[in-house]
Design a protein around this nucleic acid. Structure first.
Lengths: 339, 339
DNA sequence: AAGAGTTACTCAAACGTTTTCGTGTTAGTA
DNA sequence: TACTAACACGAAAACGTTTGAGTAACTCTT
């Protein structure tokens, strides 16, 4: 690659000092009109653009915000990024995305790369590996130094920082209530392992709704799916229990869609024999047959809120207290539940 | 935010020079054992990490690669990013993602931010707005300066650089052939406006297969969908033509899934009355009913290849010629086509 | 004609590193 | 004793930029 043109080279070309060139390019009246014009024309011809690294080093500001997420091929997370991008760009920031791949080690690595001058702040959703191991020192170090830091979706109580969360409990509760209202008596829950914070919260919402309706919570009806194993086989077990459930609440779209497929394979009709609701942020639910009633998560809004919190934190003059924003869900009723 | 500790501060603390501290932290034997140990302990205690911007400015290398894509909430593009991330991380690079939102102006803006020292190279898929306007000066400038630059998927012939493309023509051709082999006589094509390069290529593949089979190409069977308008209404027209087609090839997953929904609404059975194939990289096709036969695009591989080309270009000693890698598709046969 | 003001520049520090070269002190050798 | 080598550290340049302070050479005023 040809080396880019710098102030120094232009200065040499004209036999003037670097500061003269800098000022000339900024249109300063300190520099004579003739020279100023010549320098500008020259710089323009050679397509001069100030080097970002130098600017950032000098100003101690990168105008970049870092995002660390567990996965990127995931409708919810990519929607959140979109929201972050949207808000950040409007405020003059760029976004640097890193993927932890659900691994604690990779997450720590990403932190080290990003939080050493490369970005002005960090927006993070925890890797499964991190939640599982409960090792948060890499985060606590940043928070202690008051590094601008926002967590979203997969957060953890013991870290004090700005947070944005989905109202997982409320969403699951509303969904469960809807199933109860439409006549379901035995509602199965397709959840994740308990260390995934959102899985746990959704389970609590499910339980809350059952309690409020006077239903008993049966552990047999709660299935903890392991994402690293075959989904189909695990979900099939729901349909092999001695007393079949008449409804399923799934904590994500793919679980719900799989449940729907299996139900139909087994000859059950949806929603008559079994109703299904999934949490979702993607498109799958719209195109299944019947389309799935689902708890919508509004990832874009979440991303915007996270970016807003972070940029406020970055640009704050006075220290401010930490906020937790809660994004409420909405229940999109389609055809996989009775009316 | 508390200011991070620097070499200078440590140097002051010990009353030594900055270079001494730098050497001590690197474990140099130039520095006496005792002092070296003390400095290391001190730095460690205050969690010293060298400032990336300073390192990058000095070494003239960022180890970051920039990616500019039209959308991020898009299964194909996020899969490509995943592939880029994967390869780049293995080679010690990080990834900075920017979204052009299909807009030419935003794309140019992203280029200006990224290609001024912030990244060592750029991987780009063109915005629709850019393809439509045919304004490529922002790219040509970079290429002229031999800035490491790779295009993928939405490329353009007149720019000479490394490229990675899907075998769109081959994929569409294979899909069309499959429809012909399974008895379809009137095959409709759901394509995009012609300025989208991949839409055009897929149309050519479709036409090629028809020619080879001795079919005539009927313009009435080619529908150019406008993404900015209502998809459902546009696709419905396919089913309102005087002579109904008996098969549909859609250039993406969402068109195909919509076609399937509409076909069923109109009382046609799939694949008996009408067979459907879509291009895809997402999950929708798996969960429709019947699941959609589709042309798989292998975005992850594409991302890996793009990253490989770029990093080779960045690290090249001798100038090399430009390469174009072609990622072949595979036809995943499901239930929306006859056997 | 001397002081003040303007014009058109240059200097140098600062951001945080790394690294080459230089230098003063001490110890060892002939 | 005088020369050399080893040791332990410092000085300064370099990456590219911005910016406040400094300085010549003018011009104007009275």
């Amino acid at each position: 690659m040809k080396t880019r043109i710098t102030l120094k080279k232009i200065a040499n070309e004209f036999g003037v000092s670097i500061s003269t060139v800098s000022k000339a390019l900024k249109g300063s009246h300190e520099i004579g009109e003739e020279l100023r014009g010549k320098i500008q024309a020259f710089a323009n011809y050679y397509n001069y653009k100030p080097n970002n690294l130098a600017l950032q080093l000098r100003s101690q500001k990168t105008s970049v915000i870092g995002v660390v997420i567990p996965e990127i091929v995931h409708h919810f997370f990519s929607t959140v990024i979109d929201g972050i991008e949207h808000y950040a760009n409007n405020k003059g920031y760029n976004v640097m995305v890193c993927v932890s791949n659900e691994s604690y080690e990779k997450e720590v690595l990403n932190f080290n790369v990003l939080a050493n001058g490369s970005v002005d702040g960090l927006i993070v959703s925890l890797a499964r590996g991190t939640q599982e191991s409960r090792k948060y020192d890499h985060i606590k170090g940043l928070v202690k130094d008051e590094f601008p830091f926002v967590m979203f979706d997969r957060v953890v109580d013991e870290i004090e920082c700005d947070k944005v969360i989905i109202d997982d409990m409320g969403g699951a509760c509303k969904a469960t209530e809807h199933l109860i209202e439409t006549g379901s008596k035995r509602i199965a829950l397709l959840s994740t392992k308990d260390f995934v914070s959102v899985g746990l919260l959704r389970k609590e919402g499910y339980i809350k709704a059952l309690y409020q309706a006077g239903y008993t919570v049966e552990d047999d009806l709660i299935y903890k799916i392991d994402d690293s194993k075959n989904l189909y086989d695990q979900i099939k077990k729901v349909f092999e229990s001695p007393i079949m459930p008449d409804a399923i609440l799934a904590v994500n779209e793919v679980y719900a869609a799989n449940a729907l497929i299996i139900a139909k394979e087994k000859g059950y009709s949806v929603p008559e024999d079994i109703a299904i609701i999934g949490f979702t942020s993607g498109l799958i639910s719209e195109f299944t047959s019947p389309p799935l009633t689902s708890v919508r998560q509004h990832g874009f809004l979440m991303g915007e809120q996270a970016a807003e919190l972070l940029i406020n934190r970055i640009e704050q003059k006075e220290p401010q207290g930490f906020k937790t924003e809660i994004i409420s869900t909405s229940l999109k009723i389609r055809k996989s539940t009775k009316s």
